[in-house]
Computed example of a mutant assay.
Amino acid sequence: MRIRRTTRTLVAALATVLLASSVAACGNSDTGGDPGGDETMTLGFSQVGAESGWRTANTTSIKEAAAEAGIELKFDDAQQKQENQIKAIRNFIQQKVDVIAFSPVVESGWDTVLKEAKDAGIPVILTDRAVDSADKSLYKTFLGSDFVKEGRLAGEWLVQNTASATGPVNIVELQGTTGSAPANDRKKGFAEAIAANPNLKIVASQSGDFTRAGGKQVMEQFLKANPDIDVLFAHNDDMGLGALEAITAAGRTPGKDILIITIDAVRDGMQALADGRFNFIAECSPLLGPQLMELAKKVHAGEEVPARIETQETTFTQQQAKEALPNRRY
């Protein structure tokens, strides 16, 4: 009888342990996205598009960094349309991602959808491009470049390298996507830098939408309307590369007959600079992925982050481009 009672006691104890384990397992299956838990964090990212070599490198950096950081990335390509980005952000909200990040197509028109994300308790990070919302609580931080500074650096180089010019210096400007932060800010910085020199005059300025095709098309128009062009300022390398084709087709030598200043410093642009077809590039690094993943983890955990985080960048002349090209990552 003592043996039977002992056996029954052991069986009862084992059943109790199994029941407790089952209850614990059920409880662990629903952590509700607790930032302190071990669940994989989900990041919804809406990209502007694939309009340039810079944007392609930016997308690659984000995807690779997410995989390395163990973050589940839900990626959307807006194809340079604001309505597509707004739709993507609303989809991210419905999917209850942990963090939303996006590079805005244009600066204006985001308040409504960003408030929806805020009301859903999902923090938002702006990357590469800013928005003009007066309500700074709609997003946690901005990660990217100082576009005004980039335009200013381009203008300062031109002022220094045309100081000996006695007559007018006619400039044409290939702007980025109309209404976008880089287009607005680079234009502003460049204009501020050349304002003190009355010889430097912008005779035409038009959007090439940050694309090579757009740069070529608009440059063709510039050349027909303004036969005496001395300088081209392109808001990115790709538009400058497209303009090269138009300049060459018009029988003029890029880099000599027309000085070419661009922004970005992607590999194709750097090669054009090394070859003497471009004259100066202000860098804008697309490799934001690692910094973005670090920020996403911090805001998901409820940590305080700076309102603005700028990337470290430089400028390039022909010789500097030659030296940098062998190790260029994009």
Rank of each mutant, 00 (worst) to 15 (best):
D77C: 10
A296N: 04
K74G: 06
K63L: 09
Q95M: 02
N199C: 13
T42R: 11
P306H: 12
V218Q: 11
S21G: 15
N327K: 01
E304H: 09
A120E: 04
A196S: 15
Q160N: 10
I3D: 15
A12F: 11
W157K: 01
R55M: 13
A69K: 03
Q82R: 06
S205F: 13
L153M: 14
A65R: 00
S46K: 07
Q291W: 01
L158G: 07
G151K: 03
T314W: 01
G269W: 06
Q160F: 02
A225P: 06
S207H: 09
T40V: 14
K298G: 05
A225F: 08
M219H: 10
Q206H: 09
F278H: 04
G176Y: 01
D230G: 07
A213C: 04
V231I: 03
I71W: 02
E156V: 14
D38K: 12
A101E: 09
K188F: 13
S137N: 12
A225Q: 11
L241V: 05
L273V: 12
E72F: 14
L10R: 09
V17F: 10
D209H: 06
I171G: 00
E51L: 05
P123W: 00
G155V: 05
G37D: 11
S108E: 07
A250C: 14
A196Q: 15
A66Y: 03
I62N: 04
Q271L: 11
V131A: 00
Q318F: 01
S285G: 10
K140R: 10
G33C: 06
G189I: 09
G49D: 05
K188R: 13
I202P: 08
I71R: 01
G44Y: 00
E303F: 02
E156F: 07
G176N: 01
A67V: 13
N161L: 03
D230A: 08
D146L: 01
N226Y: 14
S285E: 02
L18F: 15
T42Y: 01
A324T: 05
F147L: 03
K140L: 08
A250G: 14
C284D: 12
G151F: 03
A196T: 15
P254W: 00
C26N: 04
K149G: 01
Q206D: 11
T262L: 01
L241Y: 00
L143A: 08
F280Y: 10
N226H: 15
G151H: 03
G240P: 13
R2M: 13
Q318P: 07
R152N: 13
G49S: 06
N279L: 06
G32T: 04
Q320W: 00
E303H: 08
P326E: 09
S52C: 07
I71C: 02
V97W: 00
D30P: 00
T112Q: 06
E72K: 15
F142P: 09
L287F: 15
N58L: 11
